[in-house]
């Protein structure tokens, strides 16, 4: 590989790396959203059961 080619490759690599870094950040965010959503779903289920218990009792 000549120096010339190396510089071209480096420029493209930078763009590629930044886009991939973006994917990592979005993945982290998705994970957090999933966790929060699970938590909220459990909260909702608990509320529902509470209401059912009150209705029966």
């Amino acid at each position: 590989m000549t120096t010339e080619e190396k510089y071209v490759a480096a420029a493209y690599l930078v763009i590629f790396a930044v886009v991939l870094a973006y994917v990592v950040i979005i993945a982290l965010k998705l994970q957090r959203l999933e966790r929060e959503l699970t938590e909220l779903a459990e909260l909702a289920r608990a509320k529902q059961e509470e209401r059912k218990a009150v209705a029966v009792g």
Binding site: T3, E4, Y7, A10, A11, V14, I15, V18, Y22
Partner: peptide
Amino acid sequence: IFGALTLVTGSIWARY
């Protein structure tokens, strides 16, 4: 983000 990419790619170009 795109501005930072411009700086880096432009910098590589300037070096070359």
